[in-house]
Design a protein around this nucleic acid. Structure first.
Lengths: 215, 215
DNA sequence: GCCTGAGATTTGGTATACCATTTTTCCGCA
DNA sequence: TGCGGAAAAATGGTATACCAAATCTCAGGC
């Protein structure tokens, strides 16, 4: 999918491909990300690969070392806790602002993501459901009207998509997103913020279970 | 200063130099950042300059356009409000955690920055005072023990340094930092969080005054 | 005088090449 | 057999070169 000649730079394309592979677990945590090898693999030169790797490092999906190869990040329980702690600081604010604004375009985008997520969840299409869930979060932070807040959340998107990939039961995620959307659409800022906090606390426990099991 | 042969990559050095020039206003908002020109100016090739510019764009100090030059970011009142809104979400959390941990090393680093800031403020050395104030914030978020939180704050550091450069009276900033430090050192998490919120509200009004005056 | 648009110029995107540093390999020795 | 350590290989950092796209300039027409 998406191999068309978009007017996307090679660098952006490579970043997208690698990000996908990392969050989907195709690139296993700890494995090397060697500029030359990736360039050869993708049939391009090192320069765009290099830029893509820097971008992934910025998103916390790749770990750079001095003068040596990067590796795919290994997420720990502590990383998950830190991520959720930051999200609990940012997302209730985002949904509160979104509920205050009720921007029609933003609401429409959220609704679209939500419906896609709902359909994908119903037919057990985990990949699509996860992607739609991530898109919903992005649309939500954009609906806040605070572009910096949206930018910060977007820099967490990779980590969040990885996190979503860790658990299989995606129904509760859809249900909670739906409640969240309804509260925002209704303009109930306090309720929306409360739901966001609850959603995040639930996400913490959901994520920890499978991680703990394979210890 | 700092022209020694550190084992810093050219790319990092260029980023540091440009960041300094931007927050100090030597590169005026809206002015072009042309890879070739900067490379010639610094006597190096385009590659490290390119990487530095990407980094600055990530920090929100440079604005990239499609297939064209970047420009130095022009900050608006709205940008300031958005920045402070995000800081109000993140920093009280950081100081709360810092007060709960009271890590001796972290406290020592904070104290050191604070003292430097105090001395520089007393002798009206605005440049040093601003840098020390920024370092204090960084030490504070690191003291939280949440590395992601520290990373997020660090990505805001450039914008914050720009913001600090906008106002001249640095004494209140020092006073508030000192109170903040004392609360954290005393382990009073709630007081520390409250002080952080107050500090940020004060920062908003301080920053807006000079911006408004030159409208 | 002002718009238009085609050619010249500027500029970022990518490819290739070389170098310094780090990592790996593997031989000789205890 | 295990352990330095030096040579070899791997790898990121930087420089240079070329290309396509965007921007700028300016002559020509209204």
């Amino acid at each position: 999918m998406g191999d068309r000649t978009e007017d996307e730079t090679e660098s952006a394309r490579v970043a997208r491909v690698l990000r996908e592979q990392i969050v989907d677990g195709i690139r296993t945590p700890g494995s090397r990300l060697v500029e030359r090898d990736l360039a050869a693999e993708l049939g391009i030169s090192r320069v765009p690969v290099r830029e893509a790797l820097r971008a992934l490092a910025g998103e916390g999906l790749a770990v750079p070392r001095r003068n040596t190869w990067m590796t795919v990040r290994t997420f720990t329980d502590r990383d998950i806790d830190e991520l959720n702690e930051v999200r609990i600081a940012l997302e209730p604010l985002a949904v509160r602002r979104a509920a205050e604004r009720r921007d029609p375009d933003a609401l429409r985008r959220m609704k679209q993501c939500l419906d896609t997520q709902g359909r994908a969840t119903a037919r057990r299409d985990a990949t699509t459901a996860r992607r739609a869930a991530a898109d919903f979060h992005e649309a939500m932070t954009e609906a806040s009207g605070n572009s910096l807040l949206a930018e910060m959340s977007s820099s967490l998107a990779g980590r969040m998509r990885w996190l979503l990939g860790q658990y299989d039961d995606l129904e509760p995620v859809y249900d909670e997103h739906r409640e969240l959307y309804l509260a925002i659409e209704a303009g109930d800022a306090s309720a929306a913020a409360a739901l966001a906090r609850r959603h995040l606390r639930a996400a913490t426990t959901r994520a920890r279970k499978p991680t703990r099991l394979r210890t």
